[in-house]
Amino acid sequence: MALSKIIGTQLLVLMISLLLLSLIGTFYPGNRGALTSAVIFCYCLTAGISGHVSGGLYVQMGGQKWATNAVLTACIFPVPFFVIFLVVNSIAWIYNSTMALPFLYIFAVIVLWSVVTFPLTIYAAHRVRNISPQLDVPIKPTTKVAREIPDLPWYRSAWLQIILTGILPFTAIYIELHFLFTAIFGHQVYTLFGILSLAFFMLLIVTAAVTIAVTYFQLQSEDWRWWWRSFATAGSPGIYILGYAVFYYYYRSYMNGVLQAAFFFGYVTAVSYAFFLMLGAVGWWSTFTFLKQIYGAIKPE
């Protein structure tokens, strides 16, 4: 249960770090490789965050296989991304494209992940494996028997909730997303990092607020299964990002052919997956904090 939420926490720290670096002028237009290098190194260095928090939360939830949890934490995002990258890069090799990365560069990244990211995640999880197996909650459960959940009308179903609540956070970044796609896939220079940072923090605030509100109404309906629901609800803007990418490709861009389609949809899918994990973590942590506050205010009789 902790894996997706915690790797999303690492991605959140990664995004904030990149935005801070952009605001101080690190990614100036003349140095296009600086952003890629910063992403790789920041991801490697923040691996300890996912290992520490994932290992601690997993143990507190009663998990016993901390090593398995740590390995999955280290692989849950890099492995799908690497599979997508291999497919896209192989297509680029077939077409003899200059966008294809050489084997030595790919090997260097794999070695960096193997000797830094993976061991750092395992080490951080190992450090917290012996913490108290008790989740920090303000009240003790009154019973171990799961409470029966009443039937709800179709318009309050989980899937409809997840789909509809992603619209509002997505509107916070819709305009900026268009400029990003135009800059990245239209071979233009993007320099509006201040506006991008503002849009990103608006996205975080709206995502947290919407997820808390939806979870509150869910609990009012006596549906106590908020763990994964809050994560999926908050992460749903990632699905809208992928949907907008389809619209952009066919109606706003001049891209065509197998090579351009592979690059566009391959990397946008990876970014959408990253946003799903990151925003899901934001929604889960904000909801968890909110519930601790409201249940902590309850006076036991």
Rank of each mutant, 00 (worst) to 15 (best):
V206H: 09
V206N: 10
A208V: 09
A209H: 06
A209S: 11
V210G: 06
V210N: 05
V214S: 10
T215E: 12
Y216R: 15
F217W: 12
F217I: 06
F217Q: 11
Q218I: 13
Q218Y: 11
Q218W: 09
S221L: 14
E222Y: 09
E222R: 15
D223G: 04
W224Y: 14
R225S: 14
R225Q: 13
R225G: 06
W226M: 07
W227E: 13
W228D: 08
W228Y: 04
W228A: 03
A232M: 02
T233C: 09
T233A: 13
T233M: 14
A234Y: 02
A234F: 08
G235Y: 11
P237S: 11
P237C: 08
G238V: 15
G238N: 10
G238C: 14
G238I: 14
G238R: 12
I239M: 01
I239K: 03
Y240G: 02
I241F: 15
I241M: 15
G243L: 15
Y244A: 04
Y244F: 15
A245M: 01
A245N: 02
V246H: 10
F247G: 00
Y248H: 13
R252I: 02
S253E: 08
Y254N: 14
Y254D: 11
M255F: 07
N256Q: 13
G257C: 00
G257P: 04
G257M: 00
L259V: 13
L259C: 06
A262W: 05
F263M: 04
F264P: 03
F265S: 04
Y267Q: 02
T269P: 05
V271F: 12
S272N: 04
S272E: 10
Y273F: 06
Y273E: 00
